[in-house]
Nucleic acid binder design. Structure first.
Lengths: 380, 380
DNA sequence: ATTCATAATGAATCCAATA
DNA sequence: ATATTGGATTCATTATGAA
């Protein structure tokens, strides 16, 4: 077992329990199923997996200029049959599911050679697919023979542990803010990994045939993990997941069989400078704010029993009751229930629906909720 | 059995044998497996299939404005389990493979709910996947609860009958000429089917919950079939495949269970005006002839096949071809190649050279490219 | 006729905390 | 475990109606 020492704190994020005796920020050498079986169950927050694609190449491909295409023909990408690939896939997906926390999610990347088998196995094992995400390549390799479309994308599947797992980590507001304030789509555009980022050996040969771009991993980690989280990569390769995790203040556990890849990954990760923690804070929306009981507005003296609230266009009115309910048309209930009732809807956000009058103008009671929250913050 | 009469010739393309006793340009009512089993083996040139997605929706979804999302909850999309869906999938894929010519290919469209199972079944049955193709939607439905990425694409799988089938139909040169002389990628951008193209009933309700855009089918048919070919659609719905096939001079065989869909499809297809045969010729050059794809102007309805383009001083003219090429003086090629040819030059920017007439004035097609670019920018 | 404002809607596996 | 309840959440396009 190798260990990469981080300069950043290894303390877990506030409010998230960390498993005991989990060797963080290390690369485990060996078979990923055996290695995962040695980890505690429900111990990792996210899994990113870039398994063998089972490319089934035969023969050598040449470019139109007769140069040879350096194919991915490594022994670890060879399987005897679809059945053998399926058995391999089920085995590692099952082991991964055991170590994944209930709030955790898994990402698997693949191409049309293997991704359909991976997706079906995910579903068969009880994972619940949240999205498939398309990595559109700005600079894919052409189809040299002109017999197919240029294969210009790869597919990622994002899945939770099971259908019931509703509270998985997803930094929706961060992604939206990063995307010109529109929600992030399922198609992402990135260049392939080349240039200075691509690891080369002494002879100038690429160290790994399928090194993924750090930008892709960065979006994955920013979307589905938080600072301090533990990210597992069972097919670590040359450590893109680890490098990005370290940079983004996440912990990683890598599993890899080939010592040459481990060596390259360790050197690579050691050179990564973690971002300052202040750069890593996430945008949080209203969802993350503490709840405020409507009655606390009355208790704080911001509203008084007997006061009349209306909607923004004064079509409906309701009376504030001392117990924190509203009364309208002889019916009594929460601000939400009564807002829905007068409109004939199933649901309503009473905080933004109901207004009070101040200095001749109508203001939503949501403005008063903010005052209460400010007071809560001041009180610690 | 219903029959739609075409005005175009039903003669097969020269050099391609046509099966005997194959009722062309008709919609067969009934189960697709039984109907395909009644067709002669190796009788169709291409299959396009839009099977049920098995969405597994649960409960009702509301938009933030409390309006209800009109979900696809039709009985035909309900399956008891993944096993039941797999059995259904294998059955129709097997029947489809029997009727497909050795030179034929199959296209299947789906989403992450079903496409992985479809893809695995395709491979298990011996089909050979050529590409997966991503339909990126310019205007997908948002994720209203902010719990996932906006599901902004669907996936098509393109496969040949088996690995040995090397001489499948693929109009590589046409696609390339139509795509600004770079080979067509595996990610395609189209709007969803809405507006005037979307079939509505007397009450203004959509006739079919999942009608596909004609532009998508047009690219599929232009890529993998030739004029006179027979295109089978075992899940015909409201007949997008048939409408596009008729317009592009292909024959179709539709299979559909619901009479209401058949009625809508027949009326729709009857109203389709086939393109002139001269507009449908394909580029066949072996070498590369001379970036918004010119074909996307056609797919977007900004230009129509058969339209005449001229240079700014009306010295030369050319005709827009359905495959996205131009024809002039009996020669056919990209907008750049044809611009260069008429001027006797080595190279030419077809975007600024070729003009179309609008309200009596000539405008460069580059103005239309900007419109398409605006749509691309909107999609990220 | 044109512009602007408002409403409607599309293959969607769409919540979290408390009782 | 289930039931209840608070209250957070949408993008691009088309259709409709007002000015």
């Amino acid at each position: 077992m190798s260990r990469v020492h981080l300069t950043q704190s290894a303390a877990p994020a506030a409010g998230r329990s960390s498993p005991p005796a989990l060797a963080l920020d290390t690369i485990v050498r060996g078979d990923c199923v055996a290695a995962m079986d040695r980890l505690p169950e429900k111990s990792v927050d996210m899994i990113f997996a870039d398994p063998p694609y089972n490319l089934q190449l035969d023969g050598t491909l040449h470019r139109p200029d007769q140069s040879r295409v350096d194919a991915c023909d490594d022994h670890w990408d060879q399987f005897a049959s679809f059945e053998a690939y399926d058995a391999f896939t089920r085995a590692w997906l099952l082991a991964a599911r055991r170590v994944l926390k209930p709030t955790g999610t898994i990402w698997v990347i693949g191409s049309y050679h293997n991704i359909f088998r991976v997706g079906a196995s995910l579903q068969d094992l009880g994972y619940w697919i949240l999205n498939d995400v398309i990595w559109r390549k700005t600079n894919p390799m052409p189809n040299f023979r002109g017999r197919r479309f240029q294969n210009a994308h790869e597919t990622l599947i994002w899945a939770s542990r099971d259908q019931k797992a509703k509270s998985y980590t997803f930094n929706y507001e961060s992604l939206k803010a990063a995307n010109d304030d529109v929600q992030m789509r399922s198609d992402w555009l990135f260049p392939i990994c080349n240039g200075g980022e691509r690891l080369k050996d002494g002879a100038g040969e690429k160290v790994h045939p399928t090194q993924k771009p750090e930008a892709l991993l960065a979006r994955v980690l920013m979307a589905a993990s938080r600072p301090g989280d533990v990210v597992l990569d069972p097919f670590f390769g040359t450590g893109t997941t680890g490098a990005v995790a370290k940079r983004l203040g996440r912990h990683f556990i890598g599993i890899e069989r080939e010592q040459a890849y481990i060596d390259a990954a360790e050197a690579r990760i050691a050179a990564v400078e973690p971002l300052d923690g202040a750069s890593l804070t996430l945008v949080t929306g209203k969802r993350a704010l503490p709840r405020v009981a409507f009655v606390s507005l009355i208790e704080a003296g911001l509203l008084a029993p007997g006061m009349t609230l209306t909607d923004s266009r004064r079509r409906w009115t309701a009376t504030v009751q001392a117990d924190g309910s509203l009364m309208t048309d002889g019916e009594q209930g929460s601000i939400h229930k009564m807002g829905a009732r007068v409109q004939g809807l199933d649901a309503c956000n009473g905080w933004t629906f109901w207004h009070f009058e101040e200095a001749g103008t109508l203001k939503p009671i949501d403005a008063l909720r903010q005052k209460v929250r400010d007071g809560m913050a001041a009180a610690g």
